[in-house]
Amino acid sequence: MNLIVAILSGAVVYAVSVLYAGIGETFTERSGVMNLGVEGIMLMGAMSGCVTAFHTRNLALAMLIVILTGAVLGLIFAFLTVTLQSDQTVCGMAMLILGTGLSGFLGEDIASKPINLKFTKIPLPVLSEIPIIGDILFNQNLLVYIMYLLLPLATFYIYKTRWGLKLRALGENPAVLDAAGENVFAMRYGYIVFGTTMMAISGAFVSLAQTNVWQEGMTAGKGWIAFALVAFSSWNPATLALGALLFGFISNLGSNLQIYLPGVPTEIFSAMPYVATIVVLIISTGNFRKKHTAEPAALAKAYDRESR
């Protein structure tokens, strides 16, 4: 029983660690922009959070810096892709490499040093008393609880509000919104910056909630898993959450089973999420038969007013 609770509550933590980034990427892609640099931005978030926490001993300030870091990276990415209309794939890779390098560069001072300041578990009164479920869902840290609120909010925003309607249209055909007098460029800037901010928070979750240390490249592909989950979820936050939980489950199943299967190399368990990503991606996005996909039609296409 304890094992199952451990696996499932671990799955929730894992899911949240990719969900912030996943929601960010969902909004970005819905607006018609593909940001391949999730991993790099997450690393910057993880690093900036740790460095601030280490030096100031102030978690709130650390999160503020994380958000600012994400926003600045978002502005750079938006400038390149929206204003200069550069190839989004190339820009995404540039963000990946910049994020990986810069986070390693600026974080070297505190690499592998314990921070001793993290998001600790806060058992929610009453709710955490519920047997099993209480331990799995309501004995978590603050960032997990915020995610519980964020998910329904994001879904509501996309499907039930005026802005969500515009967002859905933006990724399909920006020219329509332009003709209706909306500022397509400003909207895309906004969603890109929102996206990168969320990715940075995801990174901070890894370094300040899941672990409590900064290490170079510590997100270890989580950004890519988030990126893959977005396509898997058909750009729908609710499905995204389910996908993230599934991944959390697979990943935690491995690390918990490890103890019971001593002969098996640990690498096999660590490799499971990556193998799972490939399998899930092939199953969910492979067009074995032609079908109507939910992919935003204008995804990864720069909006150029002149070439309408």
Partner: peptide, 22 residues
């Protein structure tokens, strides 16, 4: 200087060259 200087410089150079391409 931190050992990650090379990767950092690569990233920065790439961003600037993309912008220059405009």
């Amino acid at each position: 200087v931190p050992s990650q200087i090379a990767t950092m410089m690569q990233g920065v150079i790439m961003i600037f060259v993309i912008a220059g391409d405009f």
